[in-house]
Simulated assay, not measured.
Amino acid sequence: MRVRQWRDGGRQLRTRAGSVFVRSAPGAGPTVVLLHGYPSSSYDFREVVERLGGRAWLAIDFLGFGLSEKPRPHHYSLFEQADIVEEAVAATVTGSIVLLAHDMGTSVATELLARDIDGALTCTLDRAVLSNGSVILEKASLRPIQKILRGPLGPVAARLANRPVFTHEFAQLFSAAHPLTKSEAEAQWELLSHAGGHRIAHLLTAYLAERVTHADRWHGAVRDWDKPLGFLWGTADPVATVAVLDGLRALRPAATVVELPGLGHYPQLEDPEAFAAGARLLLDIDNS
């Protein structure tokens, strides 16, 4: 599926923070809410949603990403992105939800878990799955470009961003067995650069600092949330390495884990069938 097809099947939703792209489909419940990572979009899940066993689903492009509005200047925050998820669910979903979160989306998910613990979540959340996200940042291996974007040279690096540089960097996240394809690279750049999004990469990486500042809250949510939480992990990930997964296991020893051997940071793109099978197991879709 190309970007235009994905776009044409969705719509823009006005939230308090700005207009965001959402795409959804009816089906059995609870609704699977898909939360993407940095620097990509809900397009990452295009081959997963058709493998969810007839479940209703909702995919969202976070503010600043994909086909959503990309305001500047703006303070992009995981708390605001969590607010957007709650608004999108309220506008789209009837009934309870489950979360399937990747990369940056895992921190949005853990904020939603924390709100559920606090009794402040505005929707009913039944279970969640975290996939290849550096929730425990000190155990991750950030790419050099991520470190640059976080620092004082971040604005310069964002201004110099271009398609060849992006394609080279993005390709490093894929395993040798499932390399980044030319068509995937083209689609990802189209979405990243939509509305000049590649120029705000330094603003979007603010979530990494929030992962440090709010680690106690979000690690505590992984540990203490009293509903089913699973981990779905490509074990050849060079960023959210198995060390991150081991840290999550230590926080939540009873969690069910599905490892995807040989898959990199984007397992849903490298092997959508294996990723979807793991998601169905952890979300209890095959048994519902």
Rank of each mutant, 00 (worst) to 15 (best):
M1C: 03
M1H: 13
R4L: 09
R4G: 01
R7I: 12
R16I: 00
G18N: 07
V22M: 11
V22C: 12
V22S: 06
S24I: 00
A25F: 01
P26V: 09
G29F: 04
T31G: 01
L34A: 04
L35W: 06
H36I: 03
H36M: 03
Y38C: 04
S40E: 13
S41T: 08
Y43R: 04
R46A: 08
E47D: 15
E50D: 15
R51V: 06
R51W: 11
R51P: 02
L52P: 02
G53L: 07
G53R: 07
G54R: 04
R55D: 13
R55K: 05
L58K: 07
A59M: 10
A59R: 00
A59W: 00
A59T: 03
I60H: 01
D61P: 08
F62W: 11
F65K: 04
E69Q: 15
E69P: 01
F79N: 05
V85Y: 00
E87S: 07
V89I: 13
A90D: 14
A90C: 10
G95E: 10
S96E: 10
M104K: 09
T106Y: 11
V108L: 07
A109E: 02
L113N: 07
A114N: 00
R115L: 03
I117V: 12
D118I: 06
D118Y: 06
A120F: 00
A120L: 12
T124Y: 02
T124K: 13
A128F: 10
N132M: 13
G133F: 13
I136C: 12
I136T: 14
E138G: 11
K139V: 06
A140P: 03
S141Y: 10
L142H: 05
P144L: 05
I145P: 01
I148R: 11
I148F: 11
P152D: 08
P155H: 02
V156Y: 13
V156D: 00
R159A: 15
A161H: 04
N162Q: 11
T167A: 14
T167E: 14
F170A: 12
Q172L: 14
F174L: 08
S175L: 07
A176G: 15
L180M: 14
E184R: 12
E184A: 11
E184C: 04
E186Q: 07
A187G: 00
Q188Y: 06
W189H: 03
W189P: 00
E190F: 03
L191H: 04
S193A: 15
H194L: 13
G196D: 10
H198C: 07
R199K: 15
H202F: 10
L208R: 02
A209S: 14
E210K: 06
H214W: 14
D216V: 11
R217T: 11
H219I: 09
R223L: 10
R223G: 08
K227Q: 13
L229M: 07
G230E: 09
L232R: 02
W233H: 05
G234C: 05
D237H: 11
P238S: 05
V242R: 12
V244W: 13
V244G: 03
V244C: 11
L248C: 04
T256C: 03
V257S: 09
V258C: 06
V258R: 05
E259N: 10
E259P: 00
P261E: 14
L263Q: 06
H265F: 08
Q268V: 00
L269N: 11
E273T: 15
G278E: 09
R280D: 05
R280M: 06
L281P: 04
D284T: 02
I285A: 05
D286Q: 04
D286N: 12
N287I: 00
